[in-house]
């Protein structure tokens, strides 16, 4: 996904002279093509995320659309107040890009797991929050952002995730990526969508749930979620803690009906290390899908 991100950003930067990429001393073997093609619109701000975000806001206040780029919680939680005050309060066009959504950097340990970010970023004012599931969705998010510069958060995986579907239209509502029962839906955000698709493909046709991907986490409206309203039961699947993420966002808009169940990461995951797949197993996401 990070490769799709940088490739699409380069394509957009060729058309859009305001696009500026600021990295927090991360992005080795990813960001170089952008830096080489647009040296005047690239900056390595060093290992200093508060300053990086303040600098991004300053650049944005002078007409640039700045993308800050770093890993996991570094471009979000480490400099949260700069995002809140400098970027969002001033409505400046800064897109915070976090690589390593959920437990994508699984074996790097808890410091590198982004599992509270959606909850926290979602509460900021004026912000648009994206959590794409695959390279195709990532490209569409970047294309939209280039045309709609604003305070925004883009949560992406790392490298090598497959394209999971080819449905486009991130602002047309949740993307229906697998047809199934009309009464049961799985709504997934991020690359964990793959788990939902794998699960659905293992079910007999009459038992197969309808699967939606939802790369847009904020803003959500009843109108945007209209496709979900006919389902008696909805399972919200996310690589994020239960509090404040996709599940909570759906409940806020759709409550009190229909019935929504959360499949998410337990807070107890702190001490476990392993690959993303291993950690998803440890989190029993699939078992929870079976029980749901």
């Amino acid at each position: 996904m990070r490769t799709a991100f940088i490739q699409e950003l380069i394509l957009q930067a060729r058309k859009n002279p305001t696009i500026f990429l600021v990295v927090g001393d991360l992005g080795f073997s990813v960001v170089e093509p952008f830096a080489q093609e647009f040296p005047d619109r690239f900056l390595n701000a060093g290992v200093a995320e508060q300053n990086m975000t303040g600098v991004a806001a300053g650049l944005a206040s002078e007409g640039y659309h700045v993308f800050t780029y770093s890993i996991a919680n570094f471009p979000t939680l480490r400099c949260l107040e700069q995002i809140r005050n400098d970027v969002c309060y001033h409505s400046l066009p800064v897109t915070v890009v976090s690589v390593g959504a959920g437990m994508a950097y699984g074996n790097l340990g808890y410091s590198h797991h982004a599992v509270q970010d959606l909850a926290i970023m979602r509460t900021l004012p004026n912000i648009t929050v994206f959590s794409p599931a695959d390279p195709g969705e990532t490209r569409e998010c970047v294309q939209w952002l280039s045309l709609n510069p604003r305070p925004s958060y883009l949560r992406i995986g790392k490298a090598g995730e497959p394209d999971l579907h080819s449905v486009r239209g991130i602002f047309d509502g949740p993307l229906r990526v697998c047809e199934g029962r009309p009464d049961l839906a799985i709504v997934a955000t991020g690359s964990v969508l793959k788990l939902a698709l794998d699960f659905a493909s293992e079910q007999a046709p009459e038992k197969r749930p309808t699967v939606f991907s939802i790369p847009l986490i904020k803003p959500l409206s009843l109108e945007f979620l209209e496709k979900l309203q006919s389902f008696k039961k909805i399972i919200a699947l996310e690589e994020h803690v239960r509090e404040g993420g996709l599940f909570a966002a759906l409940c806020e808009v759709l409550s009190p009906t229909p019935h929504i169940k959360s499949i998410s990461i337990s807070e107890e995951m702190k001490n476990v290390v392993g690959s993303q797949d291993y950690l998803r197993n440890q989190a029993e996401l699939k078992e929870m899908l079976n029980r749901a």
């Binding site: 005047d40 619109r41 900056l43 508060q50 300053n51 990086m52 975000t53 303040g54 600098v55 991004a56 806001a57 300053g58 650049l59 944005a60 206040s61 002078e62 007409g63 640039y64 107040e81 700069q82 005050n85 400098d86």
Partner: peptide, 16 residues
């Protein structure tokens, strides 16, 4: 907050 933001403005002036 002011100095990082000011650095961004100064850098913007330089770059443009």
């Amino acid at each position: 907050h002011g100095l990082p933001f000011g650095c961004g403005k100064a850098l913007a002036a330089k770059r443009s």
